[in-house]
């Protein structure tokens, strides 16, 4: 599948150099894989530093799919961009807690506006890290 065709299947918008990638209401492994590739391609194409993954439409999420989403965030940060998940639904959040998933190394926000703020915050701590010569990203 070419880059363009992958991108056309996932609705990804870019605002002020920030990529906003919304997930569909029904997420399954194949879709996440497609989504992953599309976002990565988009980051490469636009050389964007900020990615917001909007999960507010997602009604059900199992631990495996959540792991895949976490992996996607890792991949995106490997390309040098910062990732924030936005808008986890109450039901999804409590189910994930019951499934006892780990989410210490991801950033989440309630609204997209907070997401922007959190991206700025991430950049500021990253710069502090580099200046302290503690290079490395969790």
């Amino acid at each position: 599948m070419g880059e363009r065709s992958v991108l056309s299947m996932v609705n990804i918008q870019s605002i002020n150099g920030c990529i906003i990638a919304p997930l569909n209401s029904e997420v399954h492994d194949d879709y996440i894989e497609l989504f992953q590739r599309a976002v990565l391609e988009k980051v490469k194409l636009t050389r964007s530093k900020d990615v917001i993954i909007d999960v507010s439409a997602v009604k059900f999420l199992d631990s495996f799919t959540f792991e895949m989403l976490k992996e996607s965030a890792n991949m995106i940060s490997m390309l040098g961009a910062y990732v924030v998940f936005v808008g986890f639904q109450p039901g999804v959040a409590s189910a994930l807690i019951d499934l006892d998933v780990q989410f210490d190394n991801i950033f989440t926000a309630v609204t997209i506006e907070d997401g922007f703020e959190l991206l700025e915050y991430q950049k500021s701590i990253k710069i502090d890290d580099i200046s302290d010569e503690n290079i490395g990203y969790e």
């Binding site: 109450p90 959040a93 994930l96 989410f103 989440t108 309630v110």
Partner: peptide
């Protein structure tokens, strides 16, 4: 702890 974790996951 669970409640605090869930709120954190929501971004709060």
């Amino acid at each position: 702890i669970k409640i605090a974790k869930a709120t954190k996951l929501m971004g709060c």
